[in-house]
Structures are given as structure tokens and as C-alpha cells.
Simulated assay, not measured.
Amino acid sequence: MKTNILGLPLEASELIVKELNILLSNYQVYYQNLRGIHWNIKGKRFFDLHVKFEELYNDSQLKIDLIAERVLTLGGIPLHTFEDYMKNSTVVVGKNVFNDEKAIHLIVNSLSHLLTIERAIFNKSAEIDDEGTTSMVSGFIGEQEKTIWMMQSWLEEGI
């Protein structure tokens, strides 16, 4: 069996690189969605949400860099054009979202979608003992599950 420089099976690592590039593409669309809702949010919750959306897009920008660097570490080339991102992304594009609840729903749905991709990568990377990838996506999963819970709580009406 051929291995890469990290000692991981070459063919399996190449498949993980493809999946990471899909995750990267989806993150780029998610990031742009967050920028858009950060800029366009309106209403009485503007001040709180404007800050929260900035926090989320800064966090996703860091994750984008981590994903791209992991692709490089595994010997791949990270996707880096908008054309590639749009071709490989399945996260819904949020265009002209001004309403607070629509913005939060967009975030929750996007994060749920990212979780599905991340869990698949986690399982594939765990099968070949790719600790670097499993550790990275495991951290993403835990954070995103908490963010979804918080966003869902925000959407619920108080008693």
C-alpha cells in the first residue's frame, strides 16, 4: 500500500482531500452569507446581531484557513476560486437577508449542512487514523452543535 509523507494511505488521503475541498467550498459560501447578513441586518436587534454575525464570520474565516492548510498538509491543492466554490458548494446562498429570524434560520441550516459534511470527513479520516483531520473536524463539530443550540434557543419565544 502506498502512503503519503505522513504515513497515511495515499488513495484514502486523496479522497479526504476531495471531501475537505468540498467542505472548504461550503465554508466559503457560508462565510459570504455571514458577511451579507452582518452588513444588511435591520431592526431592533441590529446591535446585538451585527456583533454576533461578525464573531461568526471571523470564526469561519479561521476555519477556512485551517481546512485549506489541512488540504496542503495531506498533499492536495485547496480550491481557491469563486467558480470552484460555487461548483462544489451545496450550502444555500442567502441573498439580501435583512430580517433577524431569516438570518438565524440561514445560519442554523448552513451549520446543519456543514455538520453533515464534517461528520462524513470525520468517519473517513478516522478509518485511516488521520488524527490531524479527525481532530480538526471534531473541534468544528462540537462548536457548531453548540452554536446551533444557541441559535435555536434565540428563535424560541420566552415563557
Rank of each mutant, 00 (worst) to 15 (best):
K52W: 01
I64R: 06
E101L: 15
S153A: 11
G158V: 05
T73H: 11
N26Y: 03
V137D: 02
E145H: 13
L6P: 13
K146M: 06
N40E: 10
L111E: 01
I41P: 03
S25W: 01
V51R: 15
N4W: 02
M151Q: 11
N99T: 06
E156D: 15
G94I: 04
N21G: 09
G142Q: 05
L10M: 11
R35A: 02
K87T: 01
Y27F: 10
F122C: 07
V17H: 02
M1R: 08
Q28I: 01
D59V: 06
N26K: 11
I159Q: 15
W154H: 11
Y27C: 09
G36T: 02
S125H: 03
H105W: 06
S13H: 05
V137K: 05
L23V: 02
V93W: 10
M1T: 06
L56A: 07
L23C: 06
D65E: 09
V97C: 04
L111F: 01
E11M: 11
N88F: 09
L6G: 11
T116N: 15
G132D: 00
S89P: 07
N4L: 02
E83P: 13
E145S: 12
I159F: 14
Y30E: 00
L106H: 06
Q32T: 10
N99K: 12
V71T: 01
I16V: 04
L111I: 01
I5E: 11
I148F: 01
L23G: 09
E11F: 13
I77M: 10
P9W: 09
N109R: 10
F46L: 00
P9Y: 05
G43T: 00
K63L: 07
L49A: 03
T90W: 09
K44A: 08
E131W: 14
G142H: 08
D129K: 15
E145D: 14
S25D: 01
V17I: 03
N21S: 09
L20D: 02
P9Q: 09
F140Y: 05
I159Y: 14
I104W: 00
N40A: 13
A12F: 10
V51G: 14
Y31F: 06
I128N: 07
I67G: 09
K146N: 10
E101S: 15
A126M: 10
H105L: 07
A126N: 12
K18C: 10
W39A: 06
W154S: 09
Q144R: 15
I121R: 05
D130N: 10
L6V: 04
V29L: 04
D100E: 13
E145Y: 14
I64Y: 11
K124P: 09
K18V: 05
L24W: 01
L72N: 14
K52I: 00
W39Y: 07
T81M: 01
T3L: 08
A126K: 15
H105C: 11
M86D: 10
I148G: 04
G7V: 00
I41L: 07
L15C: 14
K124L: 03
D59I: 06
L23M: 06
T81Y: 08
H113G: 14
K52Y: 03
L111V: 04
T90I: 03
F98L: 08
T116C: 14
I104K: 02
I37N: 02
N4E: 03
L106R: 03
W149I: 00
